[in-house]
Simulated assay, not measured.
Amino acid sequence: MKITRRGFFGTLAGLGATAGGFSAWASGMKTYHGPVSDHFDGLRFFDPHGAPPRPLADLLRWRFSSHPAKWPDHAPSGFADVPPSNVDGKQVRLSFVGHASWLIQTAGLNILVDPVWSERASPFSFAGPKRVNDPGIAFDALPPIDAVLVSHGHYDHLDMRTLSRLAAKFSPRVITPLGNDVTMRGHDDAIRAEAHDWNQRVEIGNGGVAVTLAATRHWSARGLFDRNKVLWASFVLETPAGKIYIVCDSGYGDGGHFRRVREAHGALRLAILPIGAYEPRWFMRDMHMNPSDAVKALVDCGAAQALAHHHGTFQLTDEAIDAPARSLDAALGEAKVPREKFVALKPGQVFEI
């Protein structure tokens, strides 16, 4: 079989977005060094309640034997948000940018989550998963950004090009799990990255807004040989309207991660949960929830309301573009959870508390 240059780099870029990267030069990047803990052995991080990433042989088996559904080249959402400069008081305004990217406005602060404005979720600018809809907020329409939360190092969550643009325009704080700060500053030392461990609480500005990093069932990498050399996390964001549990990427497992967040943080006003990038299940089960898993996660964490994300923007896995939203509707019906309790927005749509 002849593999063209375009096909070769496209395969590498696809691997980069869906499972942590395949760019050989990225494997030599600087990574975290710190004391041993209950989830760091001195070289690599691990989840005591999770599962290790699948071996490379399984990754290649999937990539070269899969039959992914055909996505459209362009699937505009029909929405575009122009957010206010700030939101004061107890209100929280959430704007869905696309995939796992959000703008959260509350208490006079503007906070971005896993911002990706690039055309591709890839180590390459010319190949790899390409977005099929525009960001729900044009970059030039962003209000002044105070803080950025980056959950982990996979290319569909940690987008260096976007972080550099944000640093140049707004110079926000970038709060991320251990080791990702080294990665960011190695790319652009203007990025004001600060790294924190699981269960660490970080205050953001005034008004009682703070974020705690929470363990999540996932992993991290950007190259072939740096698997789990930096940490990954979910976030619990304290706002005047209540706590928001932001799960950017996670498998379900036995649901213990979600129950532990409920036990540690009490009542949650809102959970943002991933519902996409889940097929085939034999490969994705440990790292990505499907909609049925996400409904169980909502019940486990006990949030009063949920919003869905991590679907419909980049084709990372085999399911159809509309499969996550359709399956979420079915899963909610099967679990007898009111459909209005777990909503899948489109890029550019807004949800307010």
Results as ranks from 00 to 15, higher is better:
81 D>G: 09
34 G>C: 11
125 S>P: 09
102 W>Y: 14
81 D>I: 08
35 P>K: 09
60 L>A: 04
41 D>P: 05
101 S>A: 15
132 V>W: 08
85 S>A: 14
125 S>C: 03
107 A>Q: 13
109 L>H: 15
112 L>K: 12
45 F>D: 06
54 R>F: 03
55 P>Y: 08
123 P>K: 02
120 R>Q: 03
127 A>R: 10
111 I>T: 07
139 F>C: 09
118 S>E: 08
34 G>D: 10
46 F>E: 03
83 P>H: 11
122 S>I: 04
139 F>I: 13
114 D>T: 15
74 H>S: 07
111 I>P: 10
91 Q>C: 08
103 L>R: 00
131 R>H: 11
111 I>V: 15
103 L>M: 01
111 I>H: 06
86 N>H: 13
111 I>K: 06
92 V>I: 12
30 K>D: 13
92 V>R: 09
130 K>T: 13
99 H>I: 00
131 R>T: 04
117 W>D: 02
70 K>C: 02
36 V>H: 00
74 H>W: 13
44 R>S: 11
94 L>S: 11
76 P>R: 01
58 D>F: 10
106 T>L: 05
46 F>W: 06
117 W>S: 00
29 M>N: 12
133 N>I: 03
109 L>P: 12
130 K>H: 14
36 V>A: 04
110 N>R: 01
44 R>E: 02
102 W>L: 14
36 V>L: 01
70 K>H: 04
129 P>I: 06
60 L>E: 05
85 S>M: 10
47 D>V: 03
44 R>M: 01
106 T>V: 02
76 P>C: 02
121 A>Q: 08
101 S>E: 01
118 S>N: 04
127 A>F: 03
56 L>D: 08
32 Y>L: 09
51 A>N: 15
119 E>T: 13
56 L>G: 02
32 Y>P: 04
104 I>F: 05
65 S>I: 00
70 K>S: 05
132 V>P: 03
105 Q>S: 14
114 D>K: 11
45 F>M: 05
130 K>R: 15
62 W>R: 06
92 V>Y: 05
116 V>Y: 00
44 R>H: 13
54 R>V: 11
32 Y>H: 13
76 P>V: 01
68 P>V: 09
68 P>F: 09
29 M>A: 12
43 L>A: 14
30 K>N: 12
120 R>M: 02
54 R>G: 00
134 D>Y: 09
126 F>S: 08
80 A>R: 14
73 D>A: 08
69 A>I: 08
64 F>L: 14
115 P>L: 08
79 F>R: 06
71 W>I: 05
38 D>G: 05
138 A>Y: 02
132 V>T: 14
136 G>R: 04
138 A>E: 12
49 H>C: 04
71 W>D: 10
31 T>D: 06
129 P>E: 07
58 D>R: 15
51 A>M: 10
52 P>S: 08
105 Q>N: 10
90 K>H: 12
123 P>G: 02
128 G>A: 04
35 P>A: 13
121 A>K: 11
137 I>L: 04
90 K>L: 04
79 F>H: 15
128 G>Q: 07
108 G>V: 11
50 G>V: 02
139 F>S: 12
138 A>P: 07
62 W>M: 13
139 F>T: 12
140 D>A: 15
